[in-house]
Design a protein around this nucleic acid. Structure first.
Lengths: 155, 155
DNA sequence: GTACAACTTGAAGTTGACTTCAAGTCAAGG
DNA sequence: CCTTGACTTGAAGTCAACTTCAAGTTGTAC
């Protein structure tokens, strides 16, 4: 069958580096069969999974979250359109939340930093929950909906 | 003068861990004077800078970018409202761009993954720049293999 | 004047998502 | 059969943005 793709073919077609594909396999996000000699061979099916992973990473999901999402796919049969729709639906919420948070931040800019009132005590920009850190280390400010800096796509 | 804050006071008031404040100082984002014994003392002014840093991190700027932004502030006098406005203006663009990208992604979800057409060749979700490797032979992995399941609309 | 919390430093550790490397093995064309 | 490029592995390196640690010093309350 012509279904068997080598790792470099998958790399070329998916845009992921071969090393990333091996990493994803170790992490349990994709799988591959092996030739008698031990080299990986991929079903074309993996390209769709990789497209999903790329989009999910784009949205800011961690590999851990993506693994969980992929676990919702049926293991036996090929995923249907409804399957993909179901697991991508949660992104909607995440995206909506992120967009809302960013818009709030943007609108806050004009009223808060823009007006020069940037105050730790009052400003919801820098202290959105008005919670002063007695909580754990770091990242007190960042609502979870926002992905931290260093948002890099694949490759 | 009551302007001199210890590192733990600044930590409490800003929400940053003391270790982060030392790190930011090493990285040139904030500065501190020293007691004769070598302990840090901060001007209250630093709280505003930290609020700026927190908000900027929130937007997704790297410390490097933030350092550059802070460099635009006048070094001698206290920053005025106009100064903060000026350097935060670029965030507007960044935020607008991020929001636009997320909205595009979200809207793409319904049309792209949502409809089950998730295709590496065409989908702007996974292939946002429309950079296609060699225009391969046709629809290699278009959802022929997928069940033509009932049309469940988005949402 | 002493106890003790708060502070100091440099170095090393952490996390996530990979990449790079070294040294060896496999697959396919001629 | 031979060559050559693609592939394999585990280990180690990278990056940002910190945190943690160990060992020693300072500030201040009593």
């Amino acid at each position: 069958m012509e279904d068997a793709l080598t790792i470099s073919e998958v790399a070329d077609r998916s845009g992921f580096a071969a090393s990333a594909l091996r990493y994803y396999e170790r992490e349990g996000l994709i799988d591959a069969t092996r030739t008698p000699g031990g080299q990986r061979r991929y079903d074309r099916h993996v390209l769709r999974t990789l497209a999903f992973i790329a989009a999910a990473r784009h949205v800011g999901l961690t590999l851990d979250e993506i693994r969980n999402a992929l676990a919702l796919l049926p293991s036996g049969r090929n995923p249907t359109k409804a399957d993909w729709t179901r697991i991508s639906r949660s992104w909607r919420h995440r995206l909506d939340a992120e967009i809302a948070a960013l818009e709030k931040l943007r609108d806050g800019l004009d009223g808060c930093i823009g007006c020069g009132c940037l105050s730790l005590q009052r400003c919801r920009l820098s202290n959105p929950r008005d919670v002063v850190a007695s909580r754990g280390p770091g990242a007190v400010f960042l609502p979870e909906s926002l992905h931290p800096a260093g948002h890099d796509g694949p490759r």
